[in-house]
Amino acid sequence: MSFDDELRRAFERKEPPAGFADRVLARISQAQPSADKVRRPVRTSYPFAVRWIAAAAASAVLAIASSQYYASRQAAVEEARVKEQLRVSLQIASEKLNDVGRKVREHSQRDF
């Protein structure tokens, strides 16, 4: 018999002592958390009334924000329109004033 075979025989598998499986099962059951130590799960859903109130509040906030945005947008448009009118008016007035000035200068040159 070779030395390798001698070694294989020396290292042959050993069976565990009697009752080993029962002791393992006992340790596993000890390792499991008992019912009173189980942590409560984090609440993931709320009652219908709470959810309804939350939805209504969210809708109200959205509606108010939308109307405010619309109003401010309208005001900005109106302001721009007024500014444009003013600019055009001033331009017309300026042209007319220039015309008047030119005519006054022509008359005064002719008189002298």
Binding site: P17, F20, R23, V24, R27, I28, A31
Partner: peptide
């Protein structure tokens, strides 16, 4: 044998 059994139990606990 005692230490070996203790180790083997721990391994099976880990396996679980």
């Amino acid at each position: 044998r005692t230490v070996a059994e203790d180790l083997a139990q721990e391994v099976f606990l880990d396996l679980y």
